[in-house]
Amino acid sequence: MGNTLILLVGQGIQMFLVILVAPAVTGIVRRVKARFMRRRGSPIAQPYRDLLKLLRKEAVVAGNASWLFRAAPYAILAFTWVAAALVPTFASGLMFNWAADAVALVALLGAARAILALAGMDVGTSFGGIGASREMMIATLAEPAMLLVLLTMALTAHTTRLPEIADYFIGAPITVRVSLALALAALTMVALAENARIPVDNPATHLELTMVHEAMVLEYSGRHLAVIELAAQLKLVLYISLIASLFLPFGMAPATAGVVAWIAGAATYLAKLVFAAVLLGVWEVSIAKMRIFRVSEFLGGAFVFAFLAILLAFLTGEVTR
């Protein structure tokens, strides 16, 4: 009984940890980018202040908006938050370990995306429609690649549950595998596209011709916008946690290891987050955004990498059996 309680507490900590650090990660990315452009940049805590400011402001809703428009932000945040709370962060084998399934994760994110696209089209402005159609184009290309990557890992670890995959790679001897390197490359490309990061979309601009994510949320204001922005920040943390737990799982504590191990695990996790955020910032200042019509090539490359990864993992599995 006591054990169950510990697992539940651990899951709760994880749930609130991801949402608390999410704005800070975005803040670090923005700060790093600003410093590289020789600007001073806003403080790392600025996204928190923005969210608080938006929460206090009045929410303006278009006259022809339906209930969907008002409900969508909360549904998006709920789906993203559940998904982010399931990805293992500082400890593996927590209470809802059985639900942290790779395919379920993709489904949760897909549901959030579908609602966002519907909300973008709800008011009937042209930008919302453009954004929604582009988002769907990116999603149809990115989702198969992501599923293939997750199945590659599952094929190697013989399970689709993320914490168990992480445990397998912590325990397995370190080997050089092409399939894992290819899977990492593919998942990184998918993560960049899904989070509307620079080669695919520019999170810092409101230029009408290029925007995807911003075009869909253009009509939102006040607390609705705050919730949607929080969901986007949470999604970034989710993808970083996913990559970290699949490819750099070291430092993750078993769920029953005690408080000290948990704190050590949390410290490594936060270090990984900061490292990934700095890396993302450096990446974003060093390359240019590509044309929207070239995104299919970029994500097609991710798909090819993921497919090769699963083929090579299959080959290794067959040959060494």
Binding site: T175, V176, R177, V178, S179, L312, L315, T316, V319, T320
Partner: peptide, 10 residues
Amino acid sequence: YNVSHLLAGL
């Protein structure tokens, strides 16, 4: 095996 798999895969 791992090294030869790496090189052939590359």
